[in-house]
Design a protein around this nucleic acid. Structure first.
Lengths: 356, 356
DNA sequence: TGCGCGAGTGAGAACGTGCTCAACAGAGGG
DNA sequence: CCCTCTGTTGAGCACGTTCTCACTCGCGCA
C-alpha cells in the first residue's frame, strides 16, 4: 500500500491540491496562478488554468475566510422580510453589499428580543464582517452593546437604541410626523386620530420602536402646538392590521368621530382603510386618511393615498455603505445619517377650509 | 524572549485555546466540555464554562465548517426580494431553514442570467449546503445543470427548467390560469385579454419564465376550448407595471375593447388597474379585472380584487424541507411538489349573464 | 501483587487556503 | 570566474475547530 497523501473524492469538488497535481506544479504555484499574486511563468499559469477548468475547481471561501479573517458576508437582523418596507431596505442593503463583493445573511426577528439575541449569536459565530440591525427594543439591548464592545461592526436602521455607539441610518421620523400633521391641521382638521404602536410584553420586555414613537410624538406635538386636545380614544394601542382595523372601527362609530386618521406605518394604514370601508364612509368626504411609507398600492386605492414617503431602498444602501466604511475604518467617528422623507399629496385628505 | 505560542489579541474574540489556558486544561478538554462530547470531569467542565463566559467565547463557525464540511447555510437565488411574492417565499424559506438550524444567504438576480451565474458561483464558493433557485431562464441553464452534476443540492421554486434533475416546488400555474379563465367565460365574457410576459433579450438569452408561460397557456387553452379567438392585441408583450399600463391603456381605448383583463402576476395586475383608472372606466361595470397572487392590497382597492391566491410562504417552507431532505439523502428520488392555489371571488368581475 | 477496565486527559492530525521564506537557475556586470 | 540580482518555484506555517489515538491514573477483583 502506498501512503495515501490525499485520498477521498469529495462530492463537493476538488481542492487546489488536485489542480496543482493535475498541472504538475506545487500547491504554492497553483495558488499563485489562480490567486493572481506573486510571479508565475506563463507556461505554469496556462497549465494551472487548464487543470482548474478541467477539474471544475472552485475556491473554498470557507478556507479562505479561515486565513484572511474576513467572510465577505454581512448579516441583517430585521423584523420581517415579508413586510414590504423591510423588503426594500434589504434589497438596498444587498445591492450595496454586493457591489463591494459582500453577500448578506438574512435573519427575521419578528420584533422579538429573544430572536434578535439568538440571531445575533448565530451571525457572530458565523463571523460576518458586519451586521445591520433594526433593534426590536430600546430597553433590552445589552446583547447589542456587548457586540459593539467586542468590536463587531454594527449599523442601526429605521430605529435605534439611544445609548448605543454605532452608526445609524434613519429618516427624520419626528419631523415627518410633525410636519404632516401640521399640514392637515392647516387645512381645517381638528379631530385627528393616530393609533399607537402597542408594546409587546410577552417576553418581559417593552418593545418600544423608536421610529414609531417619534412619528407619534411629532403628531402629539403638532396637535398640542395648535391647541388641540387628543382624546385617548384617538390613540388606541394596537399591533398589526387587524387590531388597528378593530380599534379604528370603534372610534369611527363613536360620537366624537375623527375627521382624519394618520397611519404610522404600512400595516396601520391598511387597517385604517379596512375600518373606513367597513363603516361605509367615503374618503375624503367623510374621513381623511394619510399614512407613512409609500408602497406600491397607494396609487391604486381610490382616492389615491397621501403619504409621507420614506426612501426605504436608500436606507439599505446607505446602511451598507456605512457598514463597509466601519469595517474598513473601525475607529472612525460614528455617524448618524438622516435621510429625507417626502410628503406626497394625492387625494385622501379633504380640505376643510374650502366650502363644498 | 519566550516563544510565543499564540500571540495576537484578535479584536473579534478569543479562541478555544484561550479558554483552555484560562481554565488550565488542554484544548481537547475545553473542546469536549463546550462541544458536549467525550467525557469530561465535572470539575473541568465547570472551569471551562467559567472561562468561556469570562472571555466571552464564541465558537468560530468558519473553522467548524472547515472540518465538518457543512456550513449550515443555504442560498437563495431569486429575482427580487422587494417583490412581495418573493419576499413571502423567502420568509417561508428562512423560517423552514432556521427551524433546522440553517441560515440563508440572499442573492437577487433581477431575472438576469448573468447575475444568476455569478450568484451561483459565489454561493458555491461559500460552500452553502443547498440552494433555492427561481431560474431566470429556461434556455440558459447550463450553470444550474453543472451545479447539479457536481452534487450541489438544488431546489427550483415558482418555475423550473424542464430537463433539470432537481426537486421542484411550484403551484399548478397552467390549471390555475385555465380554471380562472374558464370561470370568467362561464359568466358571459368573450373578450378577455391577458398581457404577456415580454422576453428580455439584452443578454442574448430568451428569459422565459415557465410559471408565467403556463398561466398564459391555461388562458389560451380555456379560450380556445370555448371557441373564442384571442386577437394578438389582447396579449401585448410587456415587462413591469408601467409597460403593462401602457399596453393595456392601448387596448382599452381601441374599438375592440376587452370586457375582462387577466393579470398574470402582481405587477401586471397593478399596471392593469393603473390603465383602467387612467381611462376612467368603472370596475367591474365597464371592465372586469382578475389577477394572480393575493397580496395585502387586493382588499383595499374598490371593488376588492378577485384573484388566484398562491401560497407563497408555503412555497418557501416546502422548498426548505425539500432541500434539507436532499442534503440528508442526496440520492433519494427527485420530487416535484405542486401546491394548491385558491380562487378568491371578490367583486372585480362582472357577471354578464345577469341583466342589469 | 498483578491485571483489567473505565474515566479522564493531552498530543496531534485534518480541513483548504494565503502567504512567507528559502532555494534555485539563469542572466548580466565587474 | 565570481558575485548579484531577478524570476520562478517548493516547502511549510497559520487560521480554529473536530475528532481519533494513546497515555495515565485510580479502582476493583482474583
Amino acid at each position: 500500500m502506498l501512503p495515501v497523501v490525499q485520498a477521498s473524492v469529495p462530492a463537493q469538488g476538488s481542492s487546489i491540491f488536485d489542480v496543482a497535481r493535475e498541472a504538475g506544479v506545487s500547491r504554492a504555484t497553483a495558488a499563485r496562478a489562480l490567486g493572481g499574486y506573486g510571479s508565475v511563468s506563463e507556461e505554469a499559469r496556462r497549465r494551472v488554468e487548464a487543470a482548474a477548468a478541467k477539474l471544475g475547481y472552485s475556491v473554498n471561501s470557507v478556507a479562505r475566510s479561515m486565513v484572511t479573517g474576513q467572510t465577505m458576508t454581512l448579516g441583517a437582523l430585521i423584523a420581517d422580510v415579508s413586510n414590504p418596507f423591510f423588503a426594500r431596505v434589504i434589497r438596498g442593503f444587498t445591492d450595496g453589499a454586493r457591489s463591494a463583493g459582500y453577500d448578506v445573511v438574512l435573519v427575521n426577528t419578528d420584533e422579538t428580543v429573544d430572536s434578535e439575541i439568538h440571531g445575533l449569536k448565530v451571525l457572530t459565530e458565523k463571523r460576518v464582517d458586519g451586521i445591520l440591525v433594526a433593534p426590536a427594543s430600546e430597553e433590552a439591548s445589552e446583547h447589542l452593546a456587548s457586540a459593539v464592545d467586542h468590536g463587531q461592526a454594527l449599523v442601526q436602521v429605521d430605529r435605534f437604541v439611544p445609548g448605543l455607539d454605532t452608526d445609524v441610518v434613519v429618516v427624520n421620523n419626528y419631523e415627518s410626523g410633525y410636519q404632516a400633521v401640521k399640514r392637515v391641521i392647516a387645512i381645517g382638521h381638528t379631530r385627528i386620530a393616530a393609533p399607537l404602536q402597542r408594546t409587546r410584553g410577552h417576553d418581559g420586555h417593552a418593545n418600544l420602536i423608536s421610529s414609531m414613537l417619534e412619528r407619534h410624538q411629532g403628531y402629539r406635538d403638532a396637535m398640542a402646538e395648535a391647541g388641540l386636545t387628543v382624546p385617548s380614544a384617538y390613540t388606541p394601542p394596537a399591533h398589526g392590521r387587524s387590531e388597528v382595523r378593530t380599534a379604528v372601527a370603534g372610534m369611527l362609530n363613536s360620537a366624537d368621530r375623527p375627521t382624519a386618521v394618520f397611519g404610522l406605518d404600512d400595516s396601520f394604514t391598511l387597517g385604517i382603510i379596512d375600518a373606513v370601508y367597513g363603516c361605509d364612509l367615503v374618503v375624503p368626504d367623510q374621513v381623511s386618511i394619510f399614512g407613512f411609507d409609500d408602497t406600491e398600492w397607494t396609487t391604486v386605492v381610490r382616492p389615491p393615498l397621501s403619504v409621507i414617503a420614506q426612501p426605504a431602498y436608500d436606507l439599505g444602501t446607505c446602511a451598507a455603505q456605512a457598514l463597509l466604511h466601519r469595517i474598513h475604518a473601525p475607529d472612525a467617528p460614528r455617524q448618524t445619517h438622516v435621510l429625507p422623507t417626502t410628503w406626497i399629496e394625492r387625494g385622501s385628505i379633504r380640505d376643510l377650509t374650502r366650502t363644498g
